[in-house]
Design a protein around this nucleic acid. Sequence first.
DNA 1: CGACTATTTGACCGAGCTCAAACGCTGTGG
DNA 2: CCACAGCGTTTGAGCTCGGTCAAATAGTCG
Lengths: 249, 249
Amino acid sequence: MANRATNLLTCIPGDGTRNKDASRSDFCTVINYSVCGALSLDELVRFGASSKTIYLPEGRVLVRDGDVEDFIFSVTNGCLKSFKQLPDGRRQVTGFYFPGDFIGLADSDVYLADIEAVSDAGLCCMERKSLNALSRDIPNLERRLHELAPKALAELQGQIVLLGRKTAQERVATFLLMLLKRSFERGVTANPVSIPMICEDIADFLGLTKETVSRTFSTLRKLKLIGLDVDKTVELLDRDGLQRVAEGF
Amino acid sequence: MANRATNLLTCIPGDGTRNKDASRSDFCTVINYSVCGALSLDELVRFGASSKTIYLPEGRVLVRDGDVEDFIFSVTNGCLKSFKQLPDGRRQVTGFYFPGDFIGLADSDVYLADIEAVSDAGLCCMERKSLNALSRDIPNLERRLHELAPKALAELQGQIVLLGRKTAQERVATFLLMLLKRSFERGVTANPVSIPMICEDIADFLGLTKETVSRTFSTLRKLKLIGLDVDKTVELLDRDGLQRVAEGF
DNA sequence: CGACTATTTGACCGAGCTCAAACGCTGTGG
DNA sequence: CCACAGCGTTTGAGCTCGGTCAAATAGTCG
């Protein structure tokens, strides 16, 4: 907690100026993909009044495993990762957060993992109790928040199948398609797909080593399923082929 | 859906008789561990009026992956497992359900996995819409239901670390301690711990093969961490030792 | 350009998988 | 009461996928 507070204070506050006559997209670039997507202009003004924009540089910690969940966040820019560590240093990345994603599931007491910026990131930050108050007043917001947990559960279940039963190739193919899907969901030019995280993060997410991830990328390249990676992006040459690999056919 | 309906109809209905002057434990043997634990006697009567007891013999399917979640369940007896399958038959067990556990997380549209009885099981069954109605009227119940998702998320995250980064020994030790903890939570004589599922289910839960699970049990026995297994139970001889193995020290 | 970090590739190794056989428990029928 | 079939568990032998260790290569930033 002390930790996170420090982190927040050391963050460079974003431009908090807000205009009452603003159009929706003046508020926030991810407005239509995040929880705020459900809000009217009036409601957005109220929401904005209790929220604050923060900037988190690459590598900086946002929350620590066990931190009390008294602040929640919505990603506006960049990418973050959440991960757990075993006593001997083994790491498991439990998820990645992209613009529009919500951090801090309603009604959980504490954060379940460390969360850290993969690349320079911008977040919209709000006290949990303010969110709860708003959510009581704004049924649309409440509904949106209640959709989050089942969605997160479905995602984790998929990850459990991946970690329990898929081969290295299947894991990497699944990962690439997930990135594609999530880019698409937030309306970003999807292919070539952006891969902001380093090999080791991907490995720790997929239950592999960085060497195996690298080798698997090479194999997928030889199979003409993906193209050469340029500048942290990879082109998915054969989406159906990748899909077949990912599903284990 | 058609599937689940059929299954319900072929189940032997339990004794549904209820007494208005009954004490709490007359209603249900798991009353204080399940979601109903939050209800007053009056509320229990209302709850009972919309719920039905069903019996599910070993091996019988309760719900299928993708079934619309228009019924929810609370386990009263026995044990169930939920699992996903890959096209080539690989299976991943995503969780086990014990007495007091709730099946059908509020506000998800469809079930995310097949769920099937591991041993003869008894369930309390209710239409989702009845539960929603009750939950609107009874704040205690609503609160209880909202606690379920974060708890499930925490559990899945732990499983993800296990599947992504733990060795076979660590996995089995973790599994045994989980069984112990869950027995304890529902107030059952915990040690020796009951293991209702077969080796293959444990293997599919831990991302291993049944042979590896069996071998690992043998190793833990040689290490005097567990005793000989008698009649589907295992005695945990050295809980701290198991804990150390489970956490990877 | 040089220091540093991330990726790629190679060679070898080992934890856990596969295949197979033996063993043990349980229920059924003679 | 025993024989035996069926299923689950145990154990062994050999193999394989992915891990480990190490070195070369390619970006990246001052």
